[in-house]
Design a binder for these strands. Structure first.
Length: 941
RNA sequence: GGGCCCGUAGCUCAGCUGGUUAGAGCGCACCCCUGAUAAGGGUGAGGUCGGCCGUUCGAUUCGGCCCGGGCCCA
């Protein structure tokens, strides 16, 4: 052999590295896209196409990204990019939720560190600091989202705190006000009597607190149940000061109760022998013990349902001339027998459950306690006493009336103010509500809108419907500073809010110019104009709940921006947003526009650890997307997103990421192999479909099939299915079959050979398809691969569309033939595997098996293709018949038998096939290779 | 405690309206190749379909209970 044969072999060559090194390479691609102005180009290119609008649910502008926000944004990005490549104009405008308590809280904490007092700072200055704080985190999060490869209008996002947004949100509120869908009512909220303000849940700390507990007798006045007449209901409470506010007693309809008559009592007992009491059976022993009742007789056992319609007298009846009202017994599911007596005293002003129950049954909601913690005139006998000092006076009054059965103390977890550390109380306060029912029928509209909306997965519909069906009126007011004000004037004598469109418009215009601060800085008379006098009105100082704000983004973003549109095609958030954004957006939009702001709602689950448990700092199982960026890269994270079923909770952990890495390498190597074998490919080399060998036509058939899957999976938002299909295609069809078979042709056939040219034509198509299909997910890798093949300053895979594949490629009959061929091939590889184990062969090219086919259809199949080529053997002999008994067979492949034989002849030094003709060649080349080598020598000579 | 939901091989997922020995890829084990080489090919072992009890001729698929987990309320 005179020359280096290896140099005549067309081995793959590419600059696309096998090692991805994503953490280093991705930032370079991001820079390139910024230089290129890729986003603007994508928009310009899609101008005029049908729009696809995924409206971004605004994350809260506070803190770094976590796995949940990363999952959410990546999923949105995959969908948007896919729609863009499907031929839509998928503009994506990211947004941020900026107002609200957490930011106020952070700013206030910074104040405290510096020893400043928030209340001493003018509200407008405080709001400015909150604004700056939000702006800072918007910058941080924006950079982090972009690092994940999320494409969007990052230069022009929306936020809820721009002056335009504040004005827009106020205009939405004004729609509710002017249409009569806004009323002021009472609500029981956690209240600090020290700061004289309502507190939100996040401002509450729970500490142990020692409370005085009391057992109180409520004499029955009226009952249907004869066993109950002349008895008293016994309640237990940890807040004696709420007794003046009592208006009802709750019982459990499924709880068993007992009527007892007190026998002997111990020393100091407040119980009187002979008196009759009603207590839950399960709580009897404990209660008797506490009351020092030594003996008692059970007079009757009754079900909770027997208590229906029973009415008691108030235990303080007559005190200070008050408490002369009936105290009804009401059924409630929250009554338990874990503690107490199985009866819960209900003070509608002083507890959430109490309040809701009171509202449902139309109870009075008295203002028994003022903001500073002192009893009002509504608490006769206690006026001016502070509730924290009320236990003894209340107990004394109860004892006087023989209404106290026992007292004690209890150490329990109790809410305290995070600021003053003082214990909190529940107190009825004025709040603003949007009614769910009534003349506007918001609930009915919302339920109808849910029916008209597509939910992915479908179970989301039930969840949202269930919440809308049972929710109380929407309380939209908060007693805070950082938000859009409920800019409403209430008439001092009528108590009615002023509903004047001109006033509202003046307020809105002021907000547009100088932001919502105007509500605090301007003279109210400016808003009221000439027709009203500010002295006649009370200016509301509450702000809007942030859920109303984010619920209005459809109006201030989709409707207002000319590059978007209303309603949205899709809202996509985590499943917690059934209670949150899906919910508030639905109510806001139904209240103002009569329908949902979205046509489709997609929900995803939560990110959990490898065991399926939630990630938390205390468990130490938190995985940060920002860390993964540094160790794995965004494409790995993105691949993780599409490889998981987002309709359920999504696990992440070391093993899972390793698996994703394996799959990533498979995809990357597929692209690399394509690139390597496409070196120097040009259009002139292309072979028309009709001239292609069956194997190529089969690959094109598979491509066409997957091309349709790409479209249907996008329609269904089913990325796992698509991802698995593409991965399996690369692994089973390409790597293990098509690529393996075509190596011989690609490496050794003449450059002019039809077979090699057809193969390269198909590789080119494969490259086009795979880079496009992977581009929405592997945004960096697909771009990197694309640029290797299509270098150019202005080039980007993200400016492409998914290829339109000709339907004529579809050939189900051909696919069926290949299915059978691959079955037969499996019998051959199975037979060769035994030979390998027995060390009779190594490479499959060392074999030239005898293939016995009993079926004539199978023999006909083998006439259309070269089975040796498909099985990568040096030869094959096809014989009619069942084959000898010792032949290799597979149970699941009927009527196929293989007798392995070693290939006869010598090994071609170029293509490594073992053929008889090579033995006769002085250069040890097969006929094909000899011709190719000659061709190359002539060409180079 | 209540509402909604989930639980198929080590991992990620398929399994239509109940019906033959429950599938795929990855991983794993073994073997081969050394011209995709921190690659590639082949063969194989892995599942009492969370558990228990029902309905049924028959249940991974329907019902109940329990266990484990998640979201939202309380």
């Amino acid at each position: 052999m005179s020359r280096d044969v290896r140099s005549t072999v067309f081995l793959p060559t590419t600059s696309f590295p096998m090692k991805a090194d994503l953490p280093a390479r991705e930032p370079l691609l991001l820079e390139r896209w910024n230089r290129l102005g890729l986003w603007r180009r994508m928009r310009a290119q899609a101008a005029g196409r049908p729009k696809f609008i995924l409206h971004d649910g605004p994350p809260y502008a506070n803190g770094h990204l976590h796995m949940g926000t990363a999952l959410n944004k990546i999923l949105k990005d995959v969908i948007n990019r896919s729609r863009q490549m499907l031929g839509f104009d998928a503009n994506y405008v990211p947004g941020w939720d900026c107002h609200g308590l957490p930011i106020e809280w952070q700013v206030e904490q910074e104040y405290r560190k510096k020893g400043r007092d928030k209340d001493a700072v003018p509200i407008v200055d405080f709001r400015a600091e909150c604004r700056a704080y939000a702006q800072y985190w918007i910058g941080v999060q924006s950079a982090e989202f972009q690092r994940l490869g999320v494409a969007g209008d990052w230069e022009n996002p929306y936020t809820t705190m721009t002056f335009a947004s504040e004005a827009g949100i106020y205009r939405e509120l004004a729609k509710f006000l002017l249409s009569g869908q806004l009323y002021r009512g009472k609500k029981s909220v956690l209240w600090s009597v020290v700061e004289k303000t309502a507190l939100a849940d996040a401002e509450v700390e729970y500490h142990d607190h020692t409370s005085t507990t009391i057992w109180v007798k409520f004499p029955i006045e009226k009952t249907k149940e004869p066993d109950l007449s002349g008895t008293s209901i016994v309640i237990w409470t940890t807040t004696p000061w709420t007794i003046p506010g009592n208006r009802a007693i709750a019982y459990g309809p499924t709880i068993a109760y007992r009527v007892i008559e007190v026998g002997e009592v111990g020393e100091g007992s407040l119980a009187r022998p002979g008196e009759r009491l009603v207590i839950a059976s399960e709580r009897l022993a404990e209660t008797a013990d506490q009351a020092r009742i030594l003996t008692f007789a059970t007079l009757a056992e009754i079900d909770g349902t027997a208590l229906e319609g029973t009415v008691c007298r108030h235990p303080l009846e007559g005190l200070g001339g008050g408490y002369r009202f009936p105290v009804p017994l009401l059924p409630a599911s929250f009554v338990t027998t874990d503690q107490g007596t199985g009866f819960v005293h209900i003070a509608p002003s002083h507890g959430e459950e109490d309040f809701e129950l009171g509202r449902r049954y139309g109870l009075e909601i008295p203002d028994t306690v003022a903001g500073d913690g002192h009893y009002t005139e509504a608490a006769p006998g206690f006026v001016g006493i502070h509730v924290f000092k009320a236990a003894e006076p209340v107990i004394a009054a109860l004892r006087e009336r023989n209404a106290l059965l026992a007292r004690g103390t209890l150490v329990h977890s109790y809410p305290h103010s995070w600021r003053s550390k003082a214990p909190l109380i529940f107190r009825a306060t004025d709040q603003w509500f949007i009614p769910m029912d009534g003349p506007h029928g918001l609930r009915a509209k919302a339920l109808a809108a849910i029916e008209a909306t597509r939910f992915v997965p479908a179970k989301g519909k039930n969840r949202l419907r269930g919440m809308i069906e049972t929710r109380p009126d929407w309380c939209i007011s908060r007693q805070r500073a950082w938000g859009v004000p409920i800019a409403v004037f209430v008439h001092k004598t009528t108590g009615e809010p002023l509903r004047d469109p001109e006033v509202c418009e003046r307020i809105a215009q002021a907000f547009e110019v100088e932001g919502a601060d105007a509500w605090w800085t301007r003279d109210p008379q400016e808003f009221l104009g000439d027709r009203y006098r500010k002295e006649d009105f009370e200016k509301v100082d509450d702000i809007l709940d942030v859920w109303f704000e984010s619920g209005s983004t459809h109006a201030i973003v989709l409707e207002k921006r000319p590059d978007l549109g209303w309603p949205a095609d899709l809202y996509l958030e985590g499943s917690d947003q059934h209670r949150g954004w899906f919910h508030s957006s639905l109510l806001e939009s139904c209240g103002t526009r009569g329908r949902a702001p979205y046509n489709c709602v997609l929900t995803h689950g939560f990110v959990v650890d490898a065991k399926g448990e939630k990630m938390s700092k205390s468990k130490g199982n938190v995985i940060s997307p920002l860390d993964l960026m540094k160790t794995h890269g965004a494409d790995i994270l993105r691949l993780w997103v599409v490889s998981a079923d987002y309709s359920e909770d999504i696990r992440i952990g070391k093993e899972i990421l390793e698996g994703i890495g394996e799959n990533y390498r498979r995809l990357r190597n597929t692209l690399r192999y394509l690139l390597g074998n496409l070196a120097g490919f040009s259009a002139s080399e292309r072979v028309p479909f009709e001239a292609m060998p069956p194997l190529e036509r089969w690959v094109l058939h598979r491509l066409e099939e997957i091309g349709r899957l790409v479209r249907s999976c996008n329609e269904d938002y089913d990325y796992v299915r698509l991802y698995n299909a593409i991965l399996n295609f690369c692994t089973i069809d390409l790597s293990a079959f098509y690529f393996d078979i075509r190596k011989d042709s690609l490496y050794c056939d003449s450059r002019n050979s039809l077979r090699r040219r057809a193969a390269r034509t198909v590789l080119d198509i494969l490259f086009d398809c795979l880079t496009a299909w992977l581009a929405p997910v592997l945004v960096f890798t697909a771009e990197e691969a694309w640029l290797v093949r299509h270098p150019g300053e202005e080039e980007s895979v993200h400016l492409r569309l998914f290829p339109e594949l000709p339907e004529r490629w579809r050939d189900d009959a051909l696919a069926a033939r290949f299915e059978r061929l691959r079955e037969i091939r499996r019998v051959i590889t199975g037979a060769l595997e035994i030979e390998r184990k027995e060390k009779r062969i190594g490479a499959s090219l060392e074999a030239a098996p005898v293939l016995y086919l009993a079926r004539s259809e199978d023999r006909a199949l083998l006439e259309q293709v070269d089975m040796a080529e498909l099985a990568i053997t040096s030869g094959i002999t096809v014989v009619e018949g069942p084959g000898p008994a010792h032949a290799f067979r597979l149970e699941e492949v009927a009527e196929v038998a293989v007798v392995p034989e070693r290939a006869e002849g010598a090994k071609c030094v170029r293509c490594w096939r073992i053929l008889p003709e090579v033995a006769a060649s002085p250069e040890r080349l097969c006929a094909r290779c000899a011709a190719v080598v000659a061709e190359l020598e002539n060409g180079s000579a």
